[in-house]
Nucleic acid binder design. Sequence first.
DNA 1: AATGAATGAGATTTCATTCAT
DNA 2: GATGAATGAAATCTCATTCAT
Lengths: 192, 192, 192, 192
Amino acid sequence: MNRRSSKESRQSIIDSALKIFSLHGYAGATMRMIAEDAGISVGGIYLYFKNKDELCLFLIKEKLDEFSKEAEDLFKNIDNPLDAILNYINTSIKYAKKNREFIITQSREQGFTFGIEIKKEFFNRQKALIMEIIQKGIDRGIFVKCNPEEATKVIMGIIRGFILSVVVDPDNLFDPDECCRLILYGLLNRDK
Amino acid sequence: MNRRSSKESRQSIIDSALKIFSLHGYAGATMRMIAEDAGISVGGIYLYFKNKDELCLFLIKEKLDEFSKEAEDLFKNIDNPLDAILNYINTSIKYAKKNREFIITQSREQGFTFGIEIKKEFFNRQKALIMEIIQKGIDRGIFVKCNPEEATKVIMGIIRGFILSVVVDPDNLFDPDECCRLILYGLLNRDK
Amino acid sequence: MNRRSSKESRQSIIDSALKIFSLHGYAGATMRMIAEDAGISVGGIYLYFKNKDELCLFLIKEKLDEFSKEAEDLFKNIDNPLDAILNYINTSIKYAKKNREFIITQSREQGFTFGIEIKKEFFNRQKALIMEIIQKGIDRGIFVKCNPEEATKVIMGIIRGFILSVVVDPDNLFDPDECCRLILYGLLNRDK
Amino acid sequence: MNRRSSKESRQSIIDSALKIFSLHGYAGATMRMIAEDAGISVGGIYLYFKNKDELCLFLIKEKLDEFSKEAEDLFKNIDNPLDAILNYINTSIKYAKKNREFIITQSREQGFTFGIEIKKEFFNRQKALIMEIIQKGIDRGIFVKCNPEEATKVIMGIIRGFILSVVVDPDNLFDPDECCRLILYGLLNRDK
DNA sequence: AATGAATGAGATTTCATTCAT
DNA sequence: GATGAATGAAATCTCATTCAT
């Protein structure tokens, strides 16, 4: 058996934990499952993480930070609000596809309290970013005059819907482009 | 000890199970929690449901049936596609608010397979209903010419997003009316 | 529902208990199974028998008494030792076929102590009866000179083997006549 | 806490399980009893056996295989049918004495179906072995002309009777030699 | 650093027995 | 007499965590 470095072992645990928590939820996942998937002994996990809670909390934090950074970078480089929104939706959906179940899984369980602060902070940051874009779009006359906060919430909701769809009903995933079209142009035929 | 009728006890278990599963997820909920909430002994639950699985499966079925019936009734009585869509979104959101956590909770866990057939059938029926409305709207020139299947998926996704928001980020729930407005008119200012 | 007399209910319980204990053993049988089979409520059994132990003990006693009586009657009416032995084997096998599993089931379980005294007494009575016959056969020169006690044990063993076969390996039951033939040609004094 | 090797623990569980199942039957035996006897925690058993069923099934298989091998070896080395039969009876009885209660216990219970296939195969193999011997004995004129299948069944029945006697009525066990004598003088062709 | 046997607490499940009706 | 809902004790089983090696 070729020994792994401490770092490799740790990363292996993280990867497996993400996968297993995603598949089974926090309560449904077992340390044994994670250990087996990571190719480490059960006790071995405890060398790197104090306990199941800490392991899970770490994952939540890491994933949210990862996405935050990506989203913030994105907005730094795009000035046009239309492009920014389209990019945000696409990035989110791509990200959701990659980490889908975990995000969902961790949204619920354990009586609402698990990692709740971390998540709240994340959502607030995301919301502020999008709202800024929409406000800019309205100011520049690109977007219709609307309540930017409400529009932000709807857009975040749509992205959440995509995540949930990935998990619940993956046969009926919507196409990001079609989604953008609907958001931008709406369903009503205004030509008439 | 206050005796209840069999029916009352059963209903009490169902109500408590819905609540507890919603709060903690399938794996996180314990029969003891449910029993305590229902005011019955743990063993007593097993007089009414064969095991934890069956109890949960029953709830999923019941909730989905309940909603299906409501949605189908709704469409029977509304001919105008615009009204029908608005009504569907509002009904769904109202329903989601009522049963939120349970729906979410049950969407995930146990390696994707729990009650999957029941859910698939439900989604397909819902999809067919909405698609019919949208097609009708397109035919009558009320809605823009779009792919009705994709539009349906987006709308279902938006509703799912609402459900997920209720649970994940309840401080930032969007307003159904604002959501409808966005869906119908879109974000882009076409006057310009 | 046509009410049954107290006596009928009791008999119904006895019959069902015999069947269920036979099928599942003492520990494996449940009061619910017996109640269902007897067409009575679970609580109803307790009107007739103090508890599971008493019910089972009653059955053991009844069955053994029943057989004892039959066997003793048999010997009273038959003077010829050869006929007596043949009859005993046949009667035993017929009886075993009828009550097979129960007898077996009750032979074991519960750390050897359940109804042990009753059973011991029964076996000793049976043994005395057969030994008497064999002794008589030897005295009259019909049977070979052998140790009548050992011969008795072997014969009782053979009958037990039949019972066990009924249960364990019913496809390979031996024929009573063939069995008698085998036993007799070893037992009969052919020099005479 | 004295550490044992995995192998030792496993064997300890096997030994205790055999003892406890033998004493109390499948349903009557509890995992706690086995664990206590084996000097391990209840949960510890589940590290080695998936559940109670598997543990019991394993024992059945092991014991039957053990005996099968012993019996087959025996016949390989003995050509004389008379010696072979005597040896088989003696080996069986010796084996039965060692594993008596377990064999019995496992013959019954759980609605006849537990490990039934394994057992059927075992009995069929045993039957074939004995029948071959008896046929050989008849061919060589050592045994009387009889139906070898029926004779086989009777002999197997006698051995089963011994097993059952060990458990039911151990005070009245027959002597193997006496048993053989009885059987042989029926089987032997004395005209020759 | 790593293992994996072992534990103990707690989960699910079963069932003899009781008792209000 | 009879019911069957309900209980409580005990069974089976699971799993996070520990610890000797």
